[in-house]
């Protein structure tokens, strides 16, 4: 029962993410979503053997604290706080996000789940978060918000990964988390370079290479 609440919360965070115009707020919400997903395996009632605990802890630390810390550090260098008129207006992106959630539910309907087991809501939520991540990536102009979009996309995939928590060996889970962390880290470095080179994080300047 608890896990259904957590999942619905994640879907709600999706909507808030799409609607916020302030970058600080979107980082916080993304971190909150990360923490939610980190705690989710504990509520699945699969018993508390070490490897699940370890996983949850690692997820919470990486997604909840370390990545937002990186993003905020990158943000501090450039004193902009608001995503000014992104490619798609906020209302339109909200509607698109809702449409995406609906579609992911339809798609999840086509994918038969293993009978029993608490994973009923997992697939639609995972696809919805994935779609929101994509939406953020596509519609936002600032580099930081694009990285947040990528983070949300990874959260969606991580959520789906939780369904296989007991099947997937520990090695792969850590590998996935590690790569997410390194990915964000490298993106952080590149963003610093961008802010130095283009003295703004707006990706409009980043469009000179064309055919």
């Amino acid at each position: 029962m608890l896990h259904d609440i957590l999942i619905t919360l994640t879907v709600l965070t999706n909507f808030t993410l799409v609607a916020t115009s302030r970058i600080h707020k979107s980082i916080q919400v993304a971190a909150f979503q990360g923490v939610l997903l980190g705690l989710l395996p504990l509520t699945l009632g699969l018993g508390f053997h070490i490897h699940i605990l370890l996983m949850a802890a690692a997820a919470v630390i990486v997604k909840g604290w370390f990545i937002p810390f990186l993003l905020r550090r990158a943000l501090a260098k450039v004193h902009i706080h608001r995503e000014v008129h992104p490619y798609i207006g906020y209302t339109v992106s909200l509607m698109l996000c809702a449409l995406g959630t609906g579609m992911s539910i339809v798609l999840a309907h086509n994918l038969p789940l293993k009978p029993g087991g608490p994973f009923a809501l997992f697939v639609p939520a995972a696809l919805a978060t994935l779609f929101t991540g994509f939406l953020l990536l596509v519609s936002r102009r600032k580099a930081i918000t694009q990285v947040v979009g990528y983070l949300v996309l990874e959260n969606g995939i991580y959520l789906f990964g939780l369904m296989l928590i007991e099947a997937m060996p520990i090695l792969v889970e850590t590998g996935v988390l590690l790569d997410l962390f390194v990915g964000i880290f490298v993106m952080g470095i590149v963003i610093n370079h961008i802010t130095v080179a283009f003295d703004s994080m707006d990706t409009r300047q980043l469009a000179e290479l064309k055919d």
Partner: peptide
């Protein structure tokens, strides 16, 4: 090359 890296990466 910075722009190319950003695109490649993302």
């Amino acid at each position: 090359s910075l722009e190319a890296t950003w695109k490649y990466l993302l």
